[in-house]
Every structure is written in structure tokens, then in C-alpha cells.
Design a protein around this nucleic acid. Structure first.
Length: 829
DNA sequence: GAACGTATCTTTTTT
DNA sequence: AGATACGTTC
């Protein structure tokens, strides 16, 4: 094991400033990196001593301040690179910081060994102090898939019925404890037992024990274990306090309790800690983040200086005005208003749509127009609340032939074939990785089923060895196993031994190729002649390609554990499609924000789980999303969309009404009938009921077949989505001249070729609304309900109608109380 | 032990 | 709707 204290790195002349590579800073002669900063930014950079909180609104040059400040500390010879702890929220942010610092100070950046996410820094710390943490070197970090499997085993061993208490739920609970820095013994009694009477605290303890046996840690342990170590060892703590002369934290509003405690511990009473964040952009409460951390910073760090950055250099005044007005509805905030350094620009556009298909269509129509106007696709983003929304948009983008990339979606490393491949590599790298071994022991099929596996497990348990070792031992004895099984295992073990030997000679990429080939894994997918299998093979190739960047297999596996995402490089000219969460910190000329509907955004779960606080977090998310836009933002909502295979009707998001009138414009091109229009220059519900069903007075009724109407237009099959590859689509120039929108619609009264597609869709909608009652697409006429009637809802159960206002009912549900529901969602009980 | 069928849940966001 | 989990049958 490495010398835990790493004297050469930590204790370089901490007491005298470094002398070597720093450029001289002459008196009165300002270093060039300060020149382009505004006064507040400059103050933040130059305030190096003592606690400092920088409240940096969206687009106010936060990253610039952080990187310049760090460079300044080095240039002014206040510390060596190894004495700076710099924490970012994502790996991407860490990389970006590294690059920007390199641009300022050159190769000295290499010495910044403690720049990274909390988790990667926690891992580094644990690797240095593995033994103290009860681990041996080379311990593995479980991904959440492994974690879940392990939890299931633990629950099975404790005889807990997974139906009563799903493993996922336990995982979430344990995670929340770890986010608070709690080891099993510290779990408060009040939290230990679930509503069902299951002792979750005991399960947590058993889980930790199993982890230890496996010489593994999970994600949360990367925070909790360092915290425990530092708390329990004053000497160790002191060493690290002395080492980290300067601490910098990005996205401070997103830190959780464990992270806060860690910082508090390392910074000590009088540390030089600088936290940068924005309380209005705190969007990870569901993951344990505490906005309170930022709100009470001044109290926790006595004598803290606070600097506010509010000059925004990103968005036009209309966009900022809309965002400022929206976030002003929040109560829990420090309060600030961004000031635009740019012109007015265009108002935020609000666009009502009939359904998600039409919504997707209007987005691609707009993007095509942008393209014709010479805009670069790199400047265009579609930001969604939930990843399932991506599907209809992706399909539409593919149909239109617009190139795009997905960031965030289903993660590359979460794909089945990738996990299988990784499991093989993990076993090659560390044979005792039971979870990995279990995953692939019968993939491809080798005839090792449940019974054989159980035998291995039993043997391993009795002997106190790993599964792999158990297999090895059992094949060595003559009669322990049936000949067939014994032979199969022998072949498998031999193969692993061989691959392990090859590990010395081959590069990780070559080794991976060999393993996947010889194991029969690639063959397994080749044998399956489906389109899907084709995609999986592609992904495996991609995996091998990405392995080429790594020197060692161990290095790669570590990288994968920490960076579940293989980020797409934003170099080629493509539209970006991602979740709002993933978009934090980014900016685009044109931003499309679909799905602003009650239930989806704000998300019902957020409201149910956290009430008013949940609503405020959703509002902050809306704020984050809006402030991504530099020049133009288009918000849309769909009256109905397909969710879980059923059509669901939605009301427009309350956030729409919270946007100040002066900064928005409603797109009423053929949509005034939605009941949404500009009144007095603002967005108002004009009294229309369920959007789309009230006002069509002057249009010829046309009977249509709802099923056909809803059927998607014929489209090429969607290619397998990849984390860092993107679907290959024709370049924009090679697309047909005809706008794609006109071919994808199958209107009952076909529009002429020249007709605006939006008008065409309006025409169809009007026709549909006259011809069929609401919810025609799903279940026929919605019955009319009266006060006092008993009704049943799919999700909420039975209840009594308190009030009936057309389609909107107020219902007192027996189980959950009062709710406003649209009539089409309930049936007579 | 594997293949097929049925039942059940899912989708909020991620280091 | 689609994936997964579990049970039944061959």
C-alpha cells in the first residue's frame, strides 16, 4: 500500500510559498488573467483567505471565477497544486475545469491530484487508506446493478419478501442514509423500521457486512467511509487539514449532508474554503442535496465573506425576465435578480399542442426553419423533464433526418451487453468479484442453472471463499460434482486463467476482444439475427474502442465505476437532446422545452413526495431550463400524451401562468381554440375547458377513425441509442427538399402540399373535436358526472364527486383525500 | 435446465 | 407499450 501520508506531495513547503514555475507577479502590474473580469468576479478571485461564498446566478461566469481563482492561487505561489482540493459536481465539470486551468497556467495543472467529484476524491482517499477502512487494496466499486443484486441476496437471506419491500426501495433508503453520512449503527430508531414492520436498519447492517466480505464498496461508501475514517482518527484528519491549504467547491447548493460534513471537517475552523453555488439552481434535493447548506453557510463558517454575481452574459433580457419572474414565486431562497448584459431579444414562446406527436412535429419544423436560416445545430437543444419524453422526439428527429445526440438517456454502461462484457473483464481483473462472476457464469448458456449455482454458493459460504474459488476447488476434487458440470466449470476457470495471463501482454482493448470472442459472448449475439442483436454487437465494438484510451484494465474499470456516462463530445454539428437535469451548466442559442404540463412538470411525484418543497424544486428546475437559452426559448405543452401505453390528458403547467406577461408570447397560430390565448398581453386561460374541445364553431365536422388518427406515420426503425455514439442520420443537406412534416401526417382532410403544417394539424384537430367527444382516442365518450356520485380512479381508488365543473371534477377520494381530476380519468363506481 | 407463458411494474431527475 | 420476474411445462 502507498504511504498514506505521501509526504512528498502533501508536505512540500507548505509554509513557504512554492518558488519554481510560477510567473512573477510584479507590484502594480496586474496579471493578465484578471483583466477580463468584472469587479465582483475579480473580488472573488482575489479573496483567497478565509471562508468565501460566491452566489453565482446562471450565466454569470461562475466557472470562470473558479478556474481563475485556482490559477491565481498557484500563480501567486500561495500553494502547490497538490495542496488544493477542488470539488466539482460532475466528472464533465472536472474535466472542463482542468482544461480551462491548463489554458491559464499550463502543465502545472497536472499536479492537481485532488480535483474531481466528491466520489472520485473519496475513492482516491479510500485507496490510500484501504486497510484502515477495513478493505484490502484492489477493492471494487459496485455499480448500482451489482448493488441491487446484492441487496436481493441480503433480503432473501433475511427472509424478507421482495413483494412487500422491493429491493429498489431498500436501495433508496440506504442511499438516503449514506447521503446523510450514517452508518448502520447511527440510523435513528425512528427510521429503522419501515411502515411494513421490516427492520431496514438490520438489512443495511447485513448489506454492509456482505460488502466487506466481497471487498467492495458502493457509491455511497465513497463518501461515508472517508467521513468515518477522518472522524475517528485525529492524526489522519490533521494531516489532511494541513495538506489542503485551499478548498474550492462548485455547485455547493447540490451538496448533501455527508459532503457538507466532509468539507466542514477538512476546512476546520479557519480554513480557506470557497464555495460557489446558486440556491435557485438547487435541483438535486431528491438525491439528498440540502439547499440549507448554502443558506446557512454564513452561520457555519464564521466571518464568511459573501459575493454575489448577478451580471448575466448569456441570455437576452426577455429570457431572463421570464426566468426571474418565475423563480420569484419561490419562498425558500436568498433572493436575487439577474441582470442581462445583452439586448431584449425575443419573448419566450409558449406553444399549445394537441399531443406529444404534434409537439415533436412543431419542434422539428422550427429546427428546420432555423437550419434554413443558417443556424448551427450545435446551438439547438431540446430539454425534457423525464427521459421517456425523449422517445417521441427522437422518433420525429429520425423521421425528419435531423442529426442529434442524446445525452443522459439510458446510459451506455447500463446496457445489458455492456454490463455482461464488463462483468467478464471484472472477473479477469479480480476473480473474487462474486457478483460479476455470478452474472456471466451462465452467459452464454453453459448449462449452469439455479441448482448448480446454489451448490457453488453453499460451498463458498462454508469455506469462506469466493464463488470463483469455490468453482476452482470443486472442480479439483473428483466426485464433488457431476462430470458434465465439473467439466463445464473447469473449461470456464481455465479460460479465465488464460485471460489473466494474457492481461500482462495485451492492451486492455485487445484483451477485451479476446475475452468476448473466446467466451462465446460475441457468438451468442451473432447467433441471434435480430436488429437489436446487431445494435448490441455495435455497442460491444464501441466498448472495445473506448478501452483503447486506457493503459490498464484496472484503470478502465475504475473509470467506469465513477463515470457511468460516456459523454458525447459536442464537436459535430448536432441537436442536443437531454433532460433538464443534465443540461445544468450548459448553454444553447435555441432551447426547446416540451412537456410543460401538470403532473409531468411539475412532476406529480415531486409534489407527492415533498409537497411545497417539491414544487419549489421543480420551479428551480424550470428556472435552470429557461436560463440555458441564450437567444430563444420555446415552451410547449400537449393536451394529451401517451404514458404507459395509455392516452393521458393533461392541463397546462402552472408554471406557464407564473411567467410574466411582458416576456412571453403565446403561439396562437391556429390554436386559439385551445382556450389559451393572450389576454391583456398575458397568458390566460380563456375559459376553454379541456383544451381543444370547446370552441370549434365554424368548422365542418368530419368523422375520423381515432385509432388511425393516432397511429404514427410510417417511420424507419429507431436505431439503438447509444451513450456516446449517435444515430447515423443523413446530413441535413441530403434530406428531401420537402419539409418532412407534411409527409408524416395522415390527415382526414389531406392538406395541400403548400399548406402550413400547423394549420393542417389545427384543421384536423378541429375536425376531431367536433366529431368525437373528449378522450375519443382512448375509450369513447367520457360520462358526465354529478355532485355526490361515487367514482373510481385507476390510481387513486374510489371517491365521491364534490364538484363538477364540466370536465374538471373535484373528488374526495377515500384513500388520499381531495384532488382535481379530469372526468375522462374516472368511471362510475 | 431451458423455453414459454403470464403477471406486474415501470418513468423523475444521477454521482 | 415494453421490460422484467416468476411460474409452468417440456
Amino acid at each position: 500500500m502507498a504511504d498514506p501520508f505521501d509526504i512528498d506531495e502533501a508536505l512540500q513547503p507548505a509554509h513557504e510559498p512554492p518558488t519554481a514555475p510560477a510567473p512573477p507577479v510584479a507590484e502594480g502590474d496586474e496579471p493578465p488573467y484578471l483583466a477580463s473580469l468584472n469587479p465582483e468576479q475579480r473580488e472573488a478571485v482575489l479573496t483567497t483567505e478565509g471562508p468565501l461564498l460566491v452566489l453565482a446566478g446562471a450565466g454569470t461566469g461562475k466557472t470562470r471565477v473558479l478556474t481563475t481563482r485556482l490559477a491565481h492561487i498557484l500563480a501567486a505561489r500561495l500553494a502547490w497544486p497538490g495542496q488544493i482540493l477542488a470539488v466539482t459536481f460532475t466528472n464533465k465539470a472536472a474535466q472542463e475545469m482542468r482544461q480551462r486551468i491548463r489554458a491559464l497556467i499550463g502543465d502545472m495543472v497536472e499536479g492537481l491530484g485532488w480535483l474531481g467529484t466528491f466520489h472520485s476524491i473519496g475513492l482516491k482517499f479510500l485507496q490510500r487508506h484501504a486497510e484502515a477502512a477495513g478493505l484490502s487494496s484492489g477493492f471494487s466499486v459496485l455499480d448500482d446493478d451489482d448493488q441491487l443484486r446484492l441487496l436481493k441476496q441480503v433480503m432473501a437471506a433475511a427472509n424478507v419478501d421482495e413483494k412487500r419491500f422491493p429491493a429498489r426501495q431498500l436501495a433508496a433508503l440506504i442511499d438516503s442514509w449514506k447521503n446523510r453520512g450514517l452508518i448502520p449503527e447511527q440510523v435513528p430508531d425512528a427510521d429503522a423500521i419501515t411502515a411494513d414492520g421490516i427492520n431496514a436498519q438490520k438489512l443495511y447492517a447485513a448489506y454492509q457486512q456482505r460488502l466487506q466480505q466481497l471487498n467492495a464498496v458502493d457509491f455511497g461508501d465513497l463518501l461515508v467511509k472517508p467521513l468515518q475514517l477522518l472522524r475517528g482518527d485525529a492524526f489522519l484528519l490533521n494531516e489532511y487539514r494541513r495538506r489542503f491549504r485551499y478548498i474550492m467547491v462548485d455547485e455547493y447548493q447540490d451538496t448533501n449532508v455527508a459532503q457538507y460534513l466532509l468539507l466542514r471537517l477538512l476546512a476546520g475552523e479557519d480554513g480557506n474554503i470557497c464555495c460557489v453555488g446558486d440556491d435557485d439552481q438547487s435541483i438535486y434535493g431528491w438525491r439528498g442535496a440540502q439547499v440549507e447548506n448554502i443558506l446557512r453557510f454564513p452561520k457555519e463558517f464564521a466571518g464568511a465573506k459573501i459575493i454575489r454575481l448577478v451580471r448575466n452574459y448569456r441570455s437576452t433580457a426577455h429570457i431572463l425576465g421570464a426566468a426571474n419572474g418565475l423563480i420569484a414565486h419561490n419562498r425558500a431562497r436568498l433572493g436575487k435578480e439577474l441582470i442581462s448584459g445583452l439586448g431584449d431579444g425575443e419573448p419566450v414562446l409558449i406553444r399549445p399542442c394537441r399531443d406529444d406527436l404534434e409537439e415533436a412535429r412543431t419542434i422539428t419544423d422550427d429546427i428546420e426553419a432555423l437550419l434554413r436560416a443558417g443556424e448551427r445545430l450545435n446551438e439547438v437543444a431540446v430539454l425534457v423533464r423525464a427521459s421517456f419524453q425523449m422517445r417521441s422526439i427522437e422518433e420525429r428527429l429520425i423521421a425528419t433526418g435531423l442529426p442529434y445526440r442524446v445525452i443522459g438517456g439510458p446510459r451506455f454502461y447500463e446496457r445489458q451487453e455492456i454490463r455482461d462484457a464488463l462483468a467478464y473483464l471484472k472477473v479477469v481483473h479480480s476473480p473474487d468479484h462474486d457478483l460479476a462472476f455470478e452474472r456471466i457464469i451462465n452467459v452464454p448458456k453453459r448449462g449452469i442453472g439455479k441448482a448448480s449455482l446454489a451448490k457453488l454458493h453453499e460451498f463458498a459460504r462454508n469455506r469462506g471463499v469466493s464463488l470463483y474459488r469455490a468453482a476452482e476447488l470443486l472442480t479439483e476434487s473428483e466426485n464433488a460434482l457431476k462430470p458434465k458440470l465439473r467439466n463445464t466449470l473447469r473449461v470456464l476457470i481455465n479460460a479465465f486463467e488464460r485471460w489473466r495471463r494474457e492481461m500482462q501482454q495485451l492492451s486492455p482493448a485487445e484483451l477485451a476482444g479476446l475475452v468476448l470472442d473466446e467466451s462465446g459472448y460475441i457468438e451468442m449475439w451473432q447467433a441471434e439475427r435480430s436488429v437489436q442483436a446487431q445494435g448490441r454487437l455495435e455497442n460491444l465494438k464501441e466498448l472495445i474502442r473506448s478501452l483503447e484510451e486506457f493503459e490498464t484494465l484496472g484503470g478502465f474499470l475504475e473509470h467506469v465505476a465513477l463515470v457511468m456516462d460516456a459523454d458525447a463530445l459536442a464537436e459535430d454539428d448536432k441537436i442536443t437532446l437531454m433532460t433538464m437535469h443534465a443540461a445544468k451548466g450548459l448553454e444553447f442559442g435555441h432551447v426547446f422545452l416540451p412537456g410543460w404540463e401538470e403532473g409531468l412538470f411539475p412532476h406529480q411525484r415531486a409534489l407527492d413526495d415533498a409537497g411545497e418543497a417539491g414544487l419549489e424544486e421543480e420551479r428551480r428546475l424550470a428556472y435552470v431550463a429557461l436560463t440555458r437559452a441564450k437567444r430563444r426559448a420555446v415552451i410547449s405543452f400537449a393536451a394529451s400524451r401517451m404514458v404507459h401505453g395509455l392516452w393521458q390528458n393533461n392541463l397546462p403547467s402552472r408554471f406557464l401562468e407564473e411567467l410574466p406577461k411582458a416576456h412571453v408570447r403565446v403561439d396562437d397560430t391556429g390554436h386559439a381554440f385551445f382556450g389559451w390565448a393572450m389576454k391583456d398581453g398575458g397568458l390566460r386561460d380563456t375559459g376553454g375547458d379541456v383544451p381543444g374541445f370547446d370552441t370549434a364553431e365554424d368548422v365542418e365536422p368530419v368523422i375520423i377513425d381515432p385509432a388511425r388518427e393516432q397511429a404514427p406515420a410510417p417511420q424507419p426503425p429507431a436505431p439503438e441509442r447509444k451513450g456516446f455514439a449517435t444515430p447515423t442520420s443523413p446530413a441535413p443537406t441530403s434530406r428531401p427538399a420537402q419539409p418532412a412534416s407534411s409527409r408524416a401526417t395522415s390527415a382526414p382532410a389531406p392538406p395541400t402540399a403548400t399548406e402550413d403544417p400547423r394549420i393542417a394539424s389545427a384543421r384536423r384537430l378541429l375536425a376531431a373535436s367536433r366529431a368525437t367527444p373528449p378522450r375519443a382516442a382512448t375509450a369513447g365518450a367520457a360520462p358526465v358526472f354529478r355532485k355526490g356520485e361515487r367514482v373510481r380512479h385507476r390510481q387513486f381508488g374510489e371517491g365521491t364527486v364534490l364538484e363538477a365543473d364540466g370536465n374538471k371534477l373535484t373528488i374526495a377520494f377515500d384513500a388520499i383525500g381531495e384532488k382535481r381530476i379530469m372526468a375522462s380519468f374516472v368511471e362510475r363506481a
